[in-house]
Amino acid sequence: MKLTALTLVLTALVSGSASAQMTINGAGATFPYPIYSKWFDEYAKVDSSVRFNYQSIGSGGGQKQIIAQTVDFGASDGPMTDENLKSAPGKLLHIPTVAGAVVMTYNLPGNPAVKLDGETIAGIYLGTIKKWNDAKIAALNSGVSLPDQEIVVVHRSDGSGTTFIFTDYLSKVSADWKSKVGTNTSVNWPTGLGGKGNEGVSGQVKQTPGAIGYVELIYAKQNKMPVAEVKNSDGVFVGPTVESVTAAMATAQIPDDFRFSITNPAGKDSYPIAGATWLLVYEQQNDAAKGAKLVEFLKWSMAKGEEMAKQLDYAPLPQELRERVLKRINEIKF
């Protein structure tokens, strides 16, 4: 009797959930998660026959799962390496969506405005600068009273494109960092606590007095956490804003496969730790119906989505780049 009841319940569940609606699954970067979840929410109103389920598991996860084909699209804010591209069963395209800033956010008594430069950030993350009132930090922040407090370094515990942008920047500005740690979506951290995702790092910083962490701008903004101004390659301290990321974006030389880096760019208005983020899709889609819907969505994101980016403090792609991307989207076969 019990089994019959169970079967009944199950049939009800299964039949209840079977419907014409299609779900397209994606996973990856947490960096653009706020804008993506906004897009997918808005897009559900545009086309109600399709749902985009996006899980923010980290860029490493996005790359891994699209290679394993367990998702319909991946997302990453570090471009894939040639080696990883080769291990994929088909040709993967990088579709840039928006650019954003990786900000240094912190948790200090009274949260004073703090300025940092590349060397200092590298020192903090290498564990050579241990206290907030260290001479190197104090030298950049005359007039700010920094507490005699241990710096609690927070980094990502998962494979992350935010980490890629951050370590890419540090490798460019610090020889020490380049030789000891290097650039990747996951690295061998010399010090600090691990948090899962941009969510986890901002959560950890918010919970821990004396903490510093790197997250996408929107996570700091939405949670009213302070962000540091960072010295760019022209020697100017610049805060992370849509404008300073757009300025950084303008300096980029973008190749045809759209894999590029905009960390430590030239220009006095550029924010130095910025990066673009990509969706990863197969040029040849396995499922024609899903492929068609995916392409429709990608076109929509270029046309309408970019305008929403600014509301969430992401920098939209320059018009010229958008046209190039659109052309590439049209090459997706299904």
């Binding site: 609606q21 779900t23 699954n25 979840s37 749902r51 389920n53 996006y54 899980q55």
Partner: peptide
């Protein structure tokens, strides 16, 4: 199971 922000439409989905 992986998680899903929407309703699950098929048991073969997250």
């Amino acid at each position: 199971a992986f998680g899903n922000r929407f309703w699950n439409r098929s048991l073969a989905e997250p």
